[in-house]
């Protein structure tokens, strides 16, 4: 693998995992957020060689193809946490990391954590609502 390849290219082009999106390419928008050994990073800034020997989680890995979705994904659907969807994989990866770190965040903690994930459609309210719903136990498979 060429040394200059970025993680986002490895995922999307090398592995065909196009769930991870590329928006700004400079670390600002969060569309490319993935978890490396549990830590959320921008796949557009991370050299692919950095993930050698680590565990990388992307949107594709959150739930099996036949379902069920994770409670968080379910809440994004129920609460209208997305419109066009381009930012959604990044939002969900970021929120997944948040709920693992802090299962019962306050609204302010959600906003602080999600600050770096931009969305041009929803106006953010529905995203915050979706995350708080999941944190309150909604969306778990019955």
């Amino acid at each position: 693998m060429p040394a200059h390849r970025r993680l986002v290219d490895l995922l999307r082009e090398g592995l065909g995992l196009t769930g991870t999106k590329e928006g700004c390419s400079v670390g600002v928008c969060g569309a490319c957020a993935v978890l490396v050994d549990g830590d959320m990073v921008s796949a557009c800034l991370m050299p692919a060689i950095f993930v050698d020997g680590t565990s990388v989680e992307t949107i594709e890995g959150l739930s099996p193809p036949e379902g069920p979705l994770t409670p968080l994904q379910e809440c994004f659907i129920r609460h209208g946490g997305f419109q066009c969807g381009i930012c959604t994989p990044g939002q969900i990866m970021a929120a997944t990391a948040l709920l693992r770190d802090n299962p019962h965040p306050t609204e302010l903690e959600v906003k602080r954590w999600m600050m770096g994930n931009l969305c041009r459609c929803t106006g953010y309210y529905k995203i915050v609502e979706s995350i708080l719903a999941a944190a309150s136990g909604e969306g778990a498979p019955s």
Binding site: G27, G30, A33, M40, V41, S42, L45, M46, G116
Partner: peptide
């Protein structure tokens, strides 16, 4: 500093 994503890296 920036966002958690940047601070992690």
């Amino acid at each position: 500093i920036a966002t958690i994503r940047i601070r992690n890296q």
